[in-house]
Design a protein around this nucleic acid. Structure first.
Length: 914
RNA sequence: GCCGUCUUAGCUCAGCGGUAGAGCACUCGCUUCACACGCGAUAGGUCAGAAGUUCAAAUCUUCUAGACGGCACCA
């Protein structure tokens, strides 16, 4: 068989995905075993405006590893893909498009047309990520792809909204909210980020007290809001201001008089001890306002300009411009006390970076107290979700829940789920799933639907169950928390996806959306289905740029996964991402992927070698079963193979992907390539069919274990193996076409683990390494053969005798002399092996005695360091008494061994000096 | 301000009570019939610092320093 000398990832990547998908290999229905347990994952829906970034690549890799692993284990496996509608982002894209192409505003085209265009935009540009996921090799069931604005998912949204409203969990109210003047919408607390500004200013304004010549100085970072002040507050205990309480202020730049009130909230120690109170523009002031029954005066428009209430001459002016003017006027009036430099942290709109304005506004909210209790209870009683890694996410999650505030869910956008609430002419509200239902409730009155849409995260919060067909409004649909084994056998409808796949098994996502998404999904899924959304949550770390900072456009330190796929191959990128410790942040470094590109090439070439010599042989799992008659290297590699399989399964079960990668890497490269293939080369090259069969079989099993990490490479190679066919698939998939992805994942066989073989093989390896060391240190040319003399116990002699050919090959020796003692010329290099054995390589004419002395001395020195530590421990009475007996025994044996070895080495050294 | 994470070989990172590990880089030697994206052999670390618990600490506890993250406050 002709096979290229180096692995070309692009070729393999272009060949298999389409076949896998079109044959339905990604669908759970490919599994024909009616009793197969299910395994399900829903993807954290990327938003339709996005393109694949390294965080996605990482998360998708882990999800795909789990999915492929479980599928191979025979689970009925579903990884459900989808996207979310990204309210604000899409809205902004469409607004920009309208502006650019037609110089129109959304109001110019109207809501209906705007939404139509948003859909068109989504159809055209919204599939970037889903296309990129195919390149990744993601084994998602595309037939179950969902979008948060699909009909069913929209029904689910309305249904949830109505239920929550009817039960009093959703309310509409006037509150101080975070307002983004650019997007002209309210934002939830989680969509607002803090940005520290070092060049902020704290402005001190003097307010004249009516009927006196006194002034009260207040400080503010937002001077323009003084136009909306409706009081000045001081602490009632503050002696400085006691006399002023109850008096009024003539508010400058306005014709209003405002009271001076006493309120405990004011910290007498901070600033001037007097606070301007702007109830409509500050959350704390709002609370003060409620306590003192103050007017709530709004002085800003929704676009961040001042309104008429700010004064006719400021009406329409931008808030920052107004700020300057206000300060200037205070200066002119002689009422500007001072302006200090002040480090301030500003609330910023996460998406557009505009300074967020706290503003009084009527919005819809979800009451979170009961949901929070529900989630905390779940955490307490069942430990759900179980975070991996557990620390610190569990603690952060519960701490956040404990301080949870109500969630603002309305958004002043047109793209999204319009709130299912209608108003009649009197302003009475009717919440219903449909307009008809609302009109019924209203007794046929004319109604207008609420103009706002819901937060995108509201629909994402239903993702775990809305994606499985839950719409909640059938009245006889799936019922919460019904246990399948309690169901009567009669009159059963066929189980739905919701019955089968919820709860999902694990959620893989980033730290940044634990609150935004994970927590809300936990609460809403519990509330509406009675089920858990998932048992486990794997929180991935952040892939940082080369500068150690999170990748971002503004820092321009991003690394495009697609570029990495092009440069190193998808498989190398995937297994590299999986090799990062679960949850740990990692600085990006191309060199590290190179490791795995090299690994891919190594796998390719190892297979190439096996195939070049495979005449007459084919993969045959029976060839590994009867181990009694096998040679030491065979017993050893089978033992290692099974141990690796057991450990890989164990590691994946604990979401320790990096451990699994490291096990596979070392098994394949060190054990299989460096030792096993090398040891078997002679047999293979001489066309030993039995030997070749075993090596092909071991290779095939190794490829299976690598498949979840490196799907393209392993499929490409597997299909080339003689004997690889649909007949080798796992029983549940026996009718599918030939593919490695539906073979059984090696479970590992405990009984194949052969400690004796591993120990014996270790002696052989040790012997070869010692000889190689002598060769290298004594500058023996690779082409020169040596002879090896070994003094060892009878058992070890027989081991070496049995593997003589292999030892000679790998140590480049032409003879091995075995005996009870060494009989060699003085001009020999010597070394000791464990188990009391000693070796010598005669180097007549070649030996450099100084060098040999140095060599022996350095070996002695190394052993001496260890010996000293051992002596220290063993002479410590406390250790001998209190440490476990086995431990003490172990050290004693080790000490004897070292003493014996050093004695031998010393003798050899003296002999050299004699 | 509160909570948390990290600090291990030149670099990037594993390990997390019982003899310090990997990959890359470095040094030396190899056109050895799968692979130079390779093979073989070395070298390199008082595991940030201090104190404590323990027979035993990179690993547990406390403190200190530095890096980072989350939350709160911000007149």
């Amino acid at each position: 068989m002709e096979i290229a000398k180096a692995y070309d990832p692009k070729e393999a990547e272009s060949k298999h995905y389409e076949r896998w998908e079109s044959n339905g290999f990604f669908r759970p229905e490919i599994n024909e075993d009616p009793d197969a347990p299910k395994y399900s994952i829903v993807i954290p829906p990327p938003n339709v405006t996005g393109s694949l970034h390294m965080g996605h690549a990482l998360q998708h890799t882990l999800m795909d590893v789990l999915t492929r692993w479980k599928r191979m284990q025979g689970f009925r496996t579903l990884w459900l893909p989808g996207t979310d509608h990204a309210g604000i982002s899409v809205q902004r894209k469409v607004v920009e498009q309208l502006k650019k192409e037609e110089n129109k505003t959304p109001l110019d085209v109207g809501r209906e047309e705007f939404v139509r265009r948003a859909w068109a935009w989504k159809e055209q540009y919204g599939n970037t990520i889903t296309e990129q996921m195919r390149r990744e090799g993601a084994s998602v069931d595309w037939t179950r792809h969902r979008f948060t604005m699909d009909d069913d998912l929209s029904k689910a949204v309305r249904s949830v909204f109505c239920t929550l409203y009817d039960e009093g969990w959703i309310y509409r109210g006037l509150r101080i909210v975070n307002w983004c003047p650019k997007d002209k919408t309210v934002l939830s607390d989680l969509e607002v980020k803090e940005e520290t500004k070092k060049d902020g200013k704290l402005t001190y304004l003097k307010y004249p007290v009516v009927g006196t010549d006194q002034t009260v100085t207040v400080a503010t970072t937002r001077p323009e809001t003084m136009l909306g002040d409706t009081a000045v507050a001081v602490n009632p205990k503050d002696e400085r201001y006691k006399g002023l309480i109850g008096k009024t202020i003539a508010l400058p730049l306005t014709d209003r008089e405002i009271p001076i009130v006493a309120d405990e909230y004011v910290d007498a120690e901070f600033g001037t001890g007097a606070v301007k109170v702007t109830p409509a523009h500050d959350a704390n002031d709002y609370q003060i306002g409620l306590r003192h029954d103050l007017e709530q005066l709004l002085v800003m428009n929704d676009d961040g300009t001042m309104n008429a209430a700010a004064g006719a001459d400021l009406d329409g002016l931008d808030r920052f411009k107004a700020r300057e003017i206000v300060v200037e006027r205070f200066k002119d009036l002689g009422l500007l006390d001072k302006v200090e430099d002040y480090e301030i942290s500003l609330p910023i709109c996460e998406r557009c970076k505009t300074v967020v304005e706290p503003i009084l506004s009527e919005q819809w909210f979800v009451k979170m107290d009961e949901m929070r209790d529900m989630a905390l209870e779940l955490m307490r009683t069942e430990g759900v979700p179980h975070f991996s890694p557990q620390v610190p996410h569990e603690k952060v999650y519960t701490a956040w829940l404990e301080n949870l505030k109500d969630w603002t869910i309305s958004r002043q956008l047109w793209w999204g789920h319009q709130i299912p609430a209608w108003y009649d002419a009197d302003g009475s509200v009717y919440v219903a799933r449909t307009e008809e239902e609302a009109r019924d409730k209203a007794g046929g009155k004319d109604l207008t639907q609420d103009q706002d849409v819901l937060d995108t995260w509201f629909s994402s919060g239903l993702w775990a169950f809305s994606t499985f067909g839950w719409t909640g409004n059938s009245g006889k649909g799936p019922v919460a928390s019904r246990q399948s084994d309690e169901q009567p056998a009669v009159n059963r409808r066929p189980p739905t996806d919701l019955d089968i796949y919820l709860p999902t098994d694990v959620l893989v996502t980033g730290r940044d959306i634990i609150f935004l998404w994970v927590s809300r999904m936990i609460m809403l899924t519990r509330k509406f289905t009675g089920k858990k959304a998932f048992d486990d949550v794997v929180i991935t770390g952040t892939v940082l740029g080369k500068d150690g900072k999170p990748m971002s456009k503004s820092r321009n330190n991003g690394v495009d996964p697609i570029e990495m796929f092009d440069k190193f191959g998808v498989d190398a990128t995937r297994i590299y991402l999986a090799s990062i410790a679960t949850g740990a942040d990692i600085k990006w470094n191309d060199l590290l992927i190179e490791t795995y590109r090299n690994f891919a090439n190594k796998i390719w070439n190892a297979t190439r070698f096996c195939l070049m010599n495979s005449e007459g042989a084919r993969v045959d799992h029976l060839s590994l079963l009867d181990r009694d008659g096998l040679s030491l290297p065979d017993k050893w590699i089978i033992s290692r193979l099974n141990q690796t399989a057991i450990d890989v399964n164990k590691a994946l079960g604990k979401y320790e992907f990096h451990t699994a990668v490291s096990l596979l890497y070392h098994f394949f490269w060190d054990d299989f390539c460096d030792w096993y293939i090398e040891l078997k080369k002679d047999e293979i090259n001489t066309g030993d069919v039995e030997a070749t069969t075993r090596i092909l079989t071991i290779l095939e099993i190794a490829l299976r274990m690598l498949h979840p990490f490196m799907p393209y490479l392993t499929e490409e190679l597997w299909l080339k193996l003689p004997g690889a066919s649909a007949e080798m698939l796992a029983p549940a998939y026996k009718n599918a076409g030939a593919t490695i992805m539906l073979t059984a994942f090696p479970p590992g066989d405990e009984s194949a683990i052969d400690a004796a073989a591993e120990a014996e093989m270790q002696s052989v390896i040790d012997l070869i390494k010692k000889v190689r060391n002598i060769r290298s240190e004594m500058n023996i040319k690779p082409s020169d053969r040596v002879s090896i003399h070994v003094a060892a116990s009878a058992e070890m002699q027989s081991i070496f005798a049995a593997n003589e050919a292999q030892i000679k090959k790998l140590a480049r020796a032409d003879s091995i002399v075995l005996g009870d003692s060494l009989d060699v010329p003085k001009a020999s290099a010597k070394a000791v092996l464990s188990g009391g054995a000693e070796i010598a390589v005669p180097l007549e004419g070649l030996i450099d005695f100084d060098k040999e002395r140095e060599r022996l001395q350095s070996q002695i020195a190394k052993l001496d360091t260890e010996l000293q530590r051992l002596n220290g421990q063993l002479s410590n009475a406390n250790f001998v008494e209190r440490a476990p007996a086995e431990k003490v025994q172990e050290l004693r044996e080790r000490k004897e061994e070292i003493e014996q070895q050093t004695a031998t080495l010393r003798m050899n050294l003296e002999a050299l000096n004699a």
